[in-house]
């Protein structure tokens, strides 16, 4: 029983990071209506930023979180302004190809500059465990769980109550109407893309103490992030939150019962079931 309980809690802890990765993706989709194929590669670059800050400047990944998040926001903003927005000519298929191209460039640039080595961050708390009753929890994962929840809450409040958040939501709902009411739509696109990438910056810092970084590390998360977004409903924040947690728990519990290999089928199974019975996602259409 303790084993199942631990598996569920571990699933929730992993799910929180999936949420943070997926929430950026869902925000970008919800506002720009594009699927950001560069998401995994940009996560990888953010993880490298966290790693190098730790290795070269001895900045703890958690302390580096504000710096990497802001840096990721600026990088996302500039990337949209300088590349995606400029060369897409407003066509979705162009955006898909551009983000796919960016992903290939980022991965190969990482191979070129950082080599293909697997890098890890070894902090004093990397191996720390917390015993909560019968459940044994990894300290970095607990931190990343609460960190992800707090960041999601901040993002939710920002989107709900700030002028920029309201403007972003207006652009997401009715692009032309927003433009007619004086909102700078292109600026909001770039800000939304920046926020989406900033989420990756935060996720990177929360992941590094317990994970590794290599040029291909984004592949480990990108599929699960896409699944989370589709599961929750494309563009839905609450959906991404529920979807990420659901995937984390499904993956963890099925792995605990069926083994790591067979357990991996839980995610595609869940995905297929949602597509069959609720093709718009769990939350899409209910909000």
């Amino acid at each position: 029983m303790d084993f199942i309980l631990t598996a569920i809690v571990n699933g929730l802890l992993s799910g929180a990071v999936y949420v943070l990765v997926a929430i950026g993706l869902t925000l970008i989709y919800g506002v720009l209506h594009i699927i950001n194929f560069a998401h995994g590669s940009l996560l990888m670059l953010a993880m490298y930023a966290s790693f190098f800050l730790w290795r070269d400047l001895h900045v703890d990944p958690y302390l580096a979180l504000p710096v990497v998040t802001v840096g990721a926001f600026l990088a996302g903003y500039v990337l949209y302004r300088a590349v995606i927005g400029r060369f897409s000519a407003g066509k979705d298929e162009n955006i898909l190809l551009i983000t796919l191209g960016l992903s290939i460039i980022a991965e190969n640039a990482a191979l070129f500059f950082f080599a293909s080595d697997t890098r890890t961050v070894a902090t004093a708390y990397s191996d720390a465990m917390l015993e909560v009753g019968p459940v044994l929890l990894s300290f970095p994962k607990v931190v990343s769980f609460f960190g992800a929840l707090v960041l999601c809450m901040i993002l939710g409040l920002f989107m709900r109550y700030s002028d920029t958040g309201r403007a972003i939501r207006a652009v997401a709902k009715e692009r032309l109407g927003a433009r007619l009411s004086g909102i700078d739509v292109d600026f909001m696109y770039a800000v939304s893309y920046g926020i989406g990438i900033a989420c990756l910056g935060a996720a990177a810092c929360l992941l590094m103490p317990s994970f590794y970084v290599s040029p291909s590390v984004g592949n480990s998360f990108v599929l699960v992030a896409f699944t989370t977004v589709v599961l929750g409903g494309m563009g839905s924040f609450a959906g991404a939150l529920a979807g990420g947690m659901l995937i984390g728990v499904a993956e963890s519990v099925s792995s605990a019962f069926f083994g790591e290999q067979l357990g991996q089928i839980a995610i595609p199974m869940l995905f297929i079931l949602v597509l069959l019975f609720r093709p718009t996602g769990i939350f899409r259409g209910t909000q």
């Binding site: 084993f3 631990t6 598996a7 571990n10 992993s14 044994l136 990894s138 994962k141 994970f211 291909s216 590390v217 592949n219 480990s220 998360f221 699960v224 963890s252 792995s255 605990a256 083994g259 790591e260 290999q261 357990g263 991996q264």
Partner: peptide, 20 residues
């Protein structure tokens, strides 16, 4: 005998099973 995919994101459950 425990098999895992490549890549794998978490070994927490594997470690727990082994610990047990």
């Amino acid at each position: 005998t425990i098999a895992h995919d490549t890549p794998t994101r978490s070994f927490d459950n594997v470690a727990l099973r082994i610990r047990g």
